[in-house]
Design a protein around this nucleic acid. Structure first.
Lengths: 357, 357
DNA sequence: CTGTTAGCGCCTTCAA
DNA sequence: TTGAAGGCGCTAACAG
């Protein structure tokens, strides 16, 4: 009783003005006498009024100022990867300057696995959001897309499939990989293994055969594999990983480097995977790059690789986040921005060299 | 015109019922005939109505369903650390089951450094939020605290100072460190170095003297140092790091292990720092643990440490996130939960052993 | 420059 | 079991 938080009406009456005048004093969106404004602000201070309630403002304007970022099943899986973190950082920063906040929305609920039924997190259907960003991959058949479309929430996709009316922000995965592969063939490599990112929703780890190749439903994975073909190379073996993590790369490399006709080079689709490949090579007693060359993708810091510098395709991660942010802004302004394709750069390190004689 | 999204009123009139009845059909919070309900739902589907608008619901209920998580200056700094990610994951999961979403709110704006003035991110003042969580440390004089208190937003603090009426979730940093230090003294170590987490807002890297010790304003750093005293040990040298990162630990260790009277053991206040210490030791030609013992804190996975297993104090990270989530729930339910102190566990690995003879 | 009026979409009394 | 009415806090028209 009595000590509920003051509203704009309270402030207005304390200052002896009308509510709309008080509103102007805060928003500044209209002419107001400096003295009136000061009086309103003084009244606000004395009442402990901290500014207009965002809930009222939202309802009135139809905008919440909230951008949902849809993350995979679990945060710890999606964001153990510094790649995602850096993109998110660029996004949060860009949106922040526009007064927009980022709401983390899991695609599926965190508590219990419900077996087969692809249950969606209720937040997807009920949380306030002006736009949704699918920051890292999206499967074309994802129920997430359907749910958002049903709500009429505009979307921005990072690294995903092309969808009608959905702005896309990607990088030159394909030509970047091609350039990397040409670097290796230029050094004389002929048997090159590929360690890939996940293929789709169900995560597996192991050698990819023709039938599995048909199930490939993750855009960056596909693009980066296509880069091999562009360079005129058929991988000696393709090993799929279950996630972009060091230990996954290690497991995949143990498979890729086994067998009689060992590849002389391994191209991993992420730097973390590449780091795992290096560890596996070390465990197998192989020197890098004398016995086997290793390359990655992303260009993140890996301080613990020690004296080695990974050969990799550097992608502009923060810029990707910013581009996603600008696409969001454009959408909110009523535009429908076209796809953005950011440039990558091949960085030659010390982990690639000529194949063993 | 005309194709604005349908409202509950539209659905109600299409179904031939009143708005309040239609509301009941969706919320289920009241008696309604199954047939009426079905009719409303059918009308909703045919109109493409995706459920009650969260903005209207929020204004009415006074709740946004949004929990702000205040992050440090930059995401990439705060969340490059797997420790924070795992806590955040536990928090997002727990809040998700209660229908609450997590909004990332930077403490300071991301775009430009404004020199001296400690500018706060405008989201802190204007974003909708029912509760704010300061997940990782809070300085007692932080303007963030003042801003939130001014708005009347209830807070939960992880690993921070005790504040009147603010629930705190912490771990047994102090006794955990003490136990670790006793393990080392039990092995015979007498000269033990400490590599600490940051001391406060201004990040430095280097040896800590008495005057700097007075400026210590970060709770976990302080607690973990106090653990030394509890074990009856005065560190041979205390080196402060600027962040919990591998390269920082490496830099700190280069300082700690220099000089004539080299410590025989290094206790780092995080596992990432400890990993850096190990790299530095390797660079200096020191074997671990034969020449120097190394211990950490956190218990995260470090697959690339190779055959070594780090001796460390394992803290329950996901459980910390869950505890934060439960504190939020309690606050929203009108309770004021007391402080929570989670247990830690000393895990002896292969990186600690007797000092060199 | 300031006040009046009219909702934004929803939920919750209360009465029928 | 359903309907009618009121208002959550704010802002955008318009009128003065």
């Amino acid at each position: 009783m009595g000590h509920s938080r003051p509203t704009l009406a309270d402030v207005a009456s304390a200052a002896g003005v009308s509510v709309s005048t008080a509103s102007l004093a805060f928003s500044g969106a209209g002419p107001i006498a400096a003295e009136t404004r000061a009086r309103v602000l003084a009244a606000a201070t004395s009442l402990g009024y901290a500014g207009p309630n965002p809930l009222g403002r939202s309802l009135r304007s139809g905008r919440s100022g909230i951008v949902a970022v849809v993350i995979g099943d679990q945060l710890r899986r999606s964001f153990r990867d510094p790649v995602s973190i850096q993109v998110l950082d660029g996004l949060v920063g860009t949106l922040g300057t526009m007064g927009l906040g980022v709401l983390l929305v899991p695609a599926t609920p965190g508590d219990v696995a419900t077996g087969d039924a692809p249950v969606l997190d209720p937040l997807l259907a009920s949380a306030p959001m002006d736009v949704a960003v699918l920051i890292w991959g999206a499967h074309s058949d994802s129920p997430v897309l359907a749910a958002l479309q049903q709500r009429g929430v505009p979307m921005v996709i990072g690294e995903g499939p092309e969808l009608e009316g959905v702005p896309l922000v990607g990088i030159e995965d394909r030509s970047g990989t091609a350039e990397l592969v040409r670097h290796l063939t230029g050094l004389g490599h002929e048997r090159i293994a590929a360690v890939t990112l996940p293929f789709g929703r169900e995560r597996r780890c192991g050698v990819v055969g023709p039938e599995r190749m048909e199930q490939l439903d993750w855009t960056p994975t596909r693009h980066r594999l296509e880069g091999f073909a562009d360079a005129g190379v058929v991988p000696a073996v393709v090993v799929e990983s279950a996630a972009s993590l060091v230990e996954e790369g290690q497991a995949a490399a143990r498979v890729a480097l086994a067998g009689p006709d060992r590849p002389t080079a391994v191209v991993a689709q992420s730097d973390l995977l590449a780091a795992g490949v290096m560890l596996a090579a070390r465990d197998l007693g192989l020197r890098v790059p004398e016995d086997v060359s290793v390359a990655g993708f992303d260009g993140i810091d890996l301080p613990w690789l020690g004296p080695d510098v990974l050969t990799t395709v550097v992608q502009p991660l923060a810029a990707k986040g910013e581009a996603l942010g600008h696409a969001v802004a454009a959408l909110l302004a009523g535009d429908s921005p076209g796809p953005v394709q950011l440039a990558v750069e091949l960085r030659i390190g010390t982990t690639t060299g000529p194949p063993p004689a």
